[in-house]
Design a protein around this nucleic acid. Structure first.
Length: 285
DNA sequence: CACGTCACCTGCGTGC
DNA sequence: TGCACGCAGGTGACGT
């Protein structure tokens, strides 16, 4: 799924709630709520630690903050950090703890709140079972290998240019590499390369200063638009966003390029479907 | 180092 | 209808 904008949308929902939730009153954010119970339905969803220690360390802790790093959701408790990676099909739901569990729910945490009779559930739903949870003392043990955060100030066009010129790798797989840049996935990589008018197979070290500037601006533009539209909802996995209605290239094989009308082509790069306009994004060399 | 292949999983659309 | 097959928002472990 879930790339940076979708993960940001999920993190925001956990942090500040959602007035358009499943209930008339929406769902509140979970900051300040206390874990009263945990249940692991599919044990392999938990990467670290073992289930018994997971429960022992989490129950009784109060959630201090929810943020995002790359495609990870970062839930900060007083003495540990819960990390979630949604991989291809994961999602996190906040609901009343009386709501029925859903098919493909893999784990849940129950929350209570001082002076409040309401109890909430945070459910981790993941049809394909690729998603993972970690409970750690130091989040850097999991997040330490990630590249720059593309929307943060230290990530400049000049920084991108320098990183591109450190390798001969093709742009598409390079941008998907989370140690090069954190947060891009298949959708936003295709969208950014199209907007920047760069062919997905271009060797990174052959990108000019101007092209690096265009790619930097394009990455930020597509991510910001994705966040503004609450992410993309595609296939049978509906997540509430509508960026899928504004794709320029991704999954538009055979449809006209919005810039020039040429039909979008699909190739396979590193086992991933890759969509581009052969006119706007001419082959390198 | 760069690239290819497979594995991990389930569900959906397509075509025979 | 049934059933194979290809495809899917990700990543990590291998082999060459």
């Amino acid at each position: 799924m879930p790339e940076l904008p979708e993960v940001e949308t999920v993190a925001r929902r956990l942090r500040i709630g959602d007035t358009k939730g499943s209930y008339s009153f929406g769902t509140p954010g979970l900051i300040g709520w206390r874990v009263s119970d945990v249940n692991l339905i599919w044990a392999r969803s938990l990467f670290q630690p073992d289930p018994a220690e997971f429960a022992r360390r989490l129950v009784g802790q109060t959630l201090g903050n929810v943020s995002r790093r790359g495609k990870f959701i970062v839930m900060t408790f007083a003495s540990s950090t819960l990390l979630a990676h949604l991989r291809m099909s994961g999602d996190l739901r906040v609901e009343l703890d009386t709501a029925p569990l859903q098919p493909h729910d893999r784990a849940w945490l129950a929350f209570d709140h001082p002076g409040d009779t309401m109890r909430l559930r945070l459910a981790f739903n993941d049809p394909r079972k690729f998603g993972r949870l970690w409970l750690v003392d130091d989040p850097q043990t999991v997040l330490g290998g990630l590249g720059p955060e593309p929307l943060d100030p230290p990530f400049t066009a000049g920084e991108l240019y320098l990183r591109l010129h450190a390798t001969t790798r093709q742009l598409k797989p390079l941008l998907l590499d989370q140690s090069f840049l954190a947060g891009l996935g298949n959708i936003y990589t295709d969208e950014a390369l199209h907007l920047a008018r760069l062919h997905p197979l271009t060797p990174a070290n052959r990108v000019t200063t101007e092209q690096a500037g265009a790619l930097w601006a394009a990455i930020r533009a597509v991510l910001e638009e994705g966040i503004r539209r609450n992410g993309a909802s595609i296939d049978w996995v509906y997540r509430g966003g509508d960026f899928q209605n504004y794709f320029r290239a991704y999954q538009r094989t055979g449809q006209p390029c919005p810039a020039c009308g040429t039909l979008i082509q699909r190739i396979v790069v590193g086992q991933r479907g890759t969509h581009f306009c052969p006119t706007c994004q001419p082959a390198p060399g």
